[in-house]
Design a binder for these strands. Structure first.
Lengths: 214, 214
DNA sequence: GTAAAAACAATCATGATTGTCTTTAATATT
DNA sequence: AATATTAAAGACAATCATGATTGTTTTTAC
């Protein structure tokens, strides 16, 4: 796929009651899903327009009818990926369970899925691709912000000691994402997953203020 | 750069006392360094043979005289990168200081350098590139094995409780690499680095057997 | 001092990817 | 039913990376 061009967002087309365009939306969704699957299968750099078209089971001409160019499609795929992440996150955090154990396992499960794989492919590619970074970084920032806010809501009594609260969050993020990425790159001993998760949980509990621990 | 072909290693050429070949070795080294710089600057997938030649300040023809094709050069670059990592590691671990604090900082400093950046570029690319994986994975395995052995040498008294020893190592690896990768991908709050490092150190100390702690 | 070998440079043909443009089929509106 | 609009497919030229080939210069060896 071509490097994503940095361009000003085009003005939204006139809002019209397009009834038959629903079918078009389905085709667009198929293309977006195919793009995400390609990122997972082939990696970002080998996610090319012919490959995506083939994965979606349609011609490249049809594909370019729905997305003016490869960059636009990638942009849409990133938006969808971001929505996926947010949905999974809401599902994890919104289950009305505030136990550390449950939350850690939920986030670990989420981060072990292919959506995270795709996101990391994009994140690393964006290190050397400014155009990609310009559309990925806002999504990353929003996700982290929501993560942080959700954590505050889940542990309101912890807010007195913000330093230890932030440490618990940062520790969780780095340990879990570190494991997930090491798993992607042949670097994780699966036998250590359980011990590490258990240790992280104990660690978080230990960081809680005394008033919350009981 | 082309995807790396999986082929049997060619038989070593007759060992001759080639005195003037030292110059050739210098040129090869220049090309290998240029390759590594390109991986860092442009990422693995955009490290192409013209770019490497330009970075090395020589023609592509000259480059292909020293390395029969792009894959061979990449292979040599990976070997050099691996050596670099091992050298830095020996320097970190061999300083006759067995304090957790010193060792954590040394590994963090090492992993914060560009050599690790290049290695992670390769590691993630190898997820979807079997040819690359076939030459990268052995290097990764060897590094981890040496890491483990070195750790055993540094803490001989800890070997009674192998489970907690392994946990301390795995924890260190995942936290530090997680931070390093998050830093690469716009995901690390630099203000949290010190607190996390300090916490990791305390964590390791807490995992030591009582007989060693004092 | 000449011959051989190596270092280096330049060009060529091939294959892949990209975006644009044209053509055909399907569908909706009048 | 006729026509206009959209979906879909295919053809096209431009760009780029690759490996191979050929030619030129420098260095080493005899």
């Amino acid at each position: 796929m071509a490097r994503i061009a940095i361009k000003s967002s085009k003005p939204a087309p006139a809002l019209e009651l397009n009834l038959q365009a629903a079918k078009s939306a389905a085709t667009r969704a198929r293309l977006i899903d195919a793009t995400i699957r390609c990122i997972i299968k082939y990696g970002y750099s080998r996610t090319t327009t012919p490959r995506v078209a083939e994965e979606a089971g349609m011609s490249r001409g049809a594909m370019l009818h729905h997305f003016e160019n490869g960059g636009t499609l990638m942009q849409a795929a990133i938006a969808e990926l971001h929505e996926k992440r947010l949905r999974a996150f809401r599902q994890s955090a919104g289950s009305s369970v505030h136990e550390v154990h449950t939350l850690v396992r939920a986030y670990w499960k989420q981060i072990s899925g292919q959506t995270f794989t795709a996101f990391h492919e994009l994140a690393l590619a964006s290190r050397t691709d400014k155009g990609l970074a310009s559309i990925l970084v806002p999504a990353q920032d929003e996700f982290r912000l929501r993560w942080y806010r959700q954590a505050i809501e889940l542990f309101p009594e912890w807010q007195g000691d913000r330093a230890r609260f932030d440490l618990a969050l940062a520790l969780s993020q780095n340990v879990l994402e570190g494991m997930a990425i090491n798993r992607l790159t042949h670097g994780l001993d699966e036998r250590m997953v359980e011990p590490i998760l258990n240790d992280l949980e104990r660690q978080i509990e230990a960081l809680k203020p005394l008033s919350v621990k009981g």
